[in-house]
């Protein structure tokens, strides 16, 4: 059986014109997403992690043609979404929905909750009567834990967690096959995060949703995903089933990310050694030659500047010339 979504060599490149450039000078290229491959089965979750600016959100937007992307995004083994025109794409937009990072900003302040949740229905199912539409909206509201009498309220009357439930209800009212969650819990309190993540898990189980779950918080990703992909500067560093990745991370970047997760035990936390990464993310306009991570990698050799490591196609794939568990020498100072 072919996968629900099969992505091959996805690239998103933005032309950057600087102020003062003449109209005929070729713009510089910002490679936000640089050749990403993955497959996603129906009902499964792919977690995508990486630090700010690594291309997580751009990847999500590239998949649904919100930004111009190249490569292949094969939906249900038959249609390449990137080859579709805007008009042809519309049909698929009801099957792939998105939940956004900022719960309040993703809701139109001048629309009531009922109007917001009904918008996908109005767009894709104009055949439904307003009665039927209202019924579906009410059912969906109940499903995500919103009281039906709130239907005429406006977004500013709700808390962040409730707003994110509204966002989820809007995304699910069309009964999509794939839900792209772009850091859906980053803007919420930790206690609310757990509620929203649990809600997403419940909904996934009940509706057979596939999810692409973007986050910069490894513990959230660990909780929800079957498979995890680590991005750095628009490239895949490591991709593996969740248990394998968390038990035995191979890439030094993944190891550095994991060592930064706090342990909820003061003694263990104090004794913990972290891999401190020096410097900032390099500019995606001028990425380092060879391995993009080499400028901050504790393991970098001269070879890393020449060869671009390929992640390969294994279930647990690592884009590193020297993969392996963390060595004692790489651990930095105690926190």
């Amino acid at each position: 059986m072919s996968s629900l979504l099969s992505v091959r060599d996805l690239r998103v490149t933005f032309p950057i014109t600087r102020a003062g450039d003449m109209p005929w000078t070729a713009p510089r290229q910002l490679r936000a997403v640089n050749g990403i491959d993955f497959d996603l089965e129906a009902g499964k979750t792919l977690g995508v992690v990486g630090e700010s600016g690594c291309g997580k959100s751009t990847l999500a937007r590239g998949l649904i043609q919100m930004v111009p992307a190249s490569g292949q995004v094969v939906w249900r083994g038959e249609t390449d979404l990137l080859s579709l025109s805007r008009r042809q794409m519309k049909r698929y937009r009801s099957e792939i929905q998105m939940v956004f990072q900022d719960p309040l900003a993703s809701l139109n302040p001048r629309m009531t909750l009922g109007q917001i949740i009904a918008e996908p229905l109005k767009t894709h199912r104009s055949d439904l009567s307003s009665e039927e539409r209202r019924r579906r909206v009410a059912a969906m509201m109940e499903r995500v834990g919103l009281l039906p009498q709130m239907i005429n309220r406006y977004p500013h009357e709700f808390s962040g967690g409730q707003c994110q439930r509204i966002g989820i209800a809007r995304a699910l009212v069309m009964e999509p096959k794939l839900l792209i969650c772009d850091e859906p819990v980053s803007a919420l309190d930790v206690s609310i995060q757990a509620q929203v993540v649990d809600l997403l898990k419940d909904l996934q189980r009940d509706l057979g949703l596939a999810m692409i779950f973007i986050a910069h918080d490894l513990s959230v990703v660990k909780h929800i995903s079957e498979e995890v992909m680590v991005l750095y500067l628009g490239r895949v560093m490591e991709k593996a089933p969740k248990s394998a990745l968390f038990a035995d991370p191979q890439h030094p970047y993944t190891q550095a990310l994991m060592s930064a997760v706090p342990i909820p035990d003061p003694v263990a936390e104090r004794a913990k050694k972290v891999i401190a990464l020096d410097g900032d993310l390099p500019s995606p306009m001028a990425p380092p030659s060879g391995c993009v991570f080499r400028t901050r990698c504790p393991r970098a050799q001269s070879e890393c500047a020449q060869t671009v490591p390929q992640p390969g196609t294994d279930a647990h794939r690592t884009a590193c010339l020297f993969p392996g568990p963390t060595k004692q020498s790489e651990l930095g100072h105690e926190m």
């Binding site: 919100m66 009801s94 956004f100 900022d102 993703s106 809701l107 139109n108």
Partner: peptide, 11 residues
Amino acid sequence: EFIEAAQATGV
């Protein structure tokens, strides 16, 4: 983001 949300839905 709410404009983006509408675009993503295909409005």
